[in-house]
Simulated assay, not measured.
Amino acid sequence: MDPRILGRLSCPVCGEPLAETTAGTARALRCGRRHTFDIARQGYVNLLTGRAPHVGDSAEMIAARAEFQAAGHYDVISAALAAATTRAVQHLRDVSSFDAYPLVVDVGAGTGRYLGAVLAALPDSVGLALDVSKPALRRAARAHPRAAAALADTWQRLPLADGSTAVLLNVFAPRNGPEFHRVLDPAGTLLVVTPAADHLTELVDALGLLRVDPDKADRVTATLGGHFTPVSSTAHRAELTLTRPEIATLVGMGPSAWHTDPAALADRLAALPDPVRVSVAVRLDAYRPR
């Protein structure tokens, strides 16, 4: 593992620093108290403590997400995050003596697509993808040459040292305010992407998808309020032209995949015009630690 990333990690059990060890062909991370965490042959390290309460997105969902993202459909989100992270790192350097290699951590990283876009825009940064889904991490471990990936549960102690992180990314993912606050540099930035009320609005009724809570972004801010201060909020939109197979891929990669009957979905898809114009609408909120 890149030492610039390894040096920011901490044992999720005791909080001590981690070092890489090798025994034959097996690689692992181990702390001074000998808590040991295996590095999978696909490149990610398992930093879970005990059994996770859920296994995250399935291999099928991750494959669908990778296909949809690779087509560029959500590049509006990648571009917004890259620009916001660049500003956040500049702010960090302006107000503190943070070292030359800012660490960007994507919590709930999925395929690592957004983290990869951010690292491409910041050539002197390194990145860490955290997710509870093994299929996601197999892809995230290859998202960028300066990125690493780790299996970790957002609701547990994050495997990062106090104040070790320049920027935290959180895209359509759970948020742990106290842990985010602990691992962020005091001058660091948390970037949260949430769907706007009209995100994918053309498909919600037509396909029976989960509806976005119109107050979602405000509720997110309220849950973080004890630890973070909002500093900016921007809206980002794009209009896609999607074929029926692309719409099926879109549905299969998100939360509606858990709640939609496949037969009913197929019937509703068949009733759609081909192609369909679909709105992408998200909100990007930036927060700094209190």
Score class of each variant (00 low, 15 high):
211 R>A: 11
131 D>V: 00
174 P>H: 10
26 A>K: 09
220 V>W: 05
195 P>M: 14
68 F>V: 09
133 S>T: 01
248 A>I: 06
127 G>Q: 01
119 L>N: 15
199 H>V: 13
150 A>G: 12
254 G>Q: 15
215 D>N: 06
100 A>P: 11
148 A>R: 12
81 L>A: 09
204 V>K: 12
257 A>S: 11
134 K>W: 11
156 Q>P: 13
7 G>W: 02
4 R>T: 14
283 R>C: 03
61 M>H: 14
101 Y>R: 15
114 Y>A: 15
255 P>N: 03
12 P>F: 02
141 A>R: 04
262 P>W: 04
5 I>P: 09
61 M>P: 01
261 D>A: 05
180 F>P: 15
215 D>Q: 08
161 A>K: 05
88 A>R: 06
66 A>F: 02
112 G>H: 08
205 D>W: 05
208 G>A: 12
117 A>L: 13
100 A>G: 10
240 L>R: 01
90 Q>S: 15
270 A>I: 04
227 H>Q: 09
256 S>P: 04
216 K>Q: 02
170 N>R: 11
139 R>H: 07
55 V>R: 06
124 D>N: 15
208 G>F: 08
180 F>T: 06
258 W>S: 01
276 V>W: 01
140 A>M: 07
27 R>K: 07
60 E>F: 04
109 A>V: 07
111 T>V: 13
135 P>V: 00
214 P>K: 12
137 L>D: 02
271 A>F: 03
136 A>Q: 11
194 T>V: 01
139 R>F: 02
15 G>Q: 05
140 A>T: 02
183 V>P: 08
256 S>H: 02
189 T>M: 12
266 A>I: 12
290 R>W: 09
89 V>H: 02
85 T>V: 11
104 V>W: 10
214 P>G: 13
165 T>H: 12
40 A>L: 01
82 A>F: 08
67 E>Y: 13
80 A>H: 01
32 G>Y: 00
253 M>S: 06
10 S>P: 05
50 G>V: 01
35 H>G: 08
192 V>A: 11
126 V>Y: 02
140 A>Y: 14
52 A>N: 13
249 T>P: 15
289 P>L: 08
46 N>A: 00
73 H>T: 13
236 H>Q: 10
96 S>Y: 04
222 A>I: 07
200 L>P: 00
212 V>A: 06
137 L>T: 10
249 T>N: 07
227 H>N: 09
223 T>S: 15
34 R>G: 07
10 S>L: 13
139 R>K: 11
145 P>T: 06
222 A>K: 14
17 P>Y: 09
99 D>W: 09
39 I>S: 02
111 T>C: 12
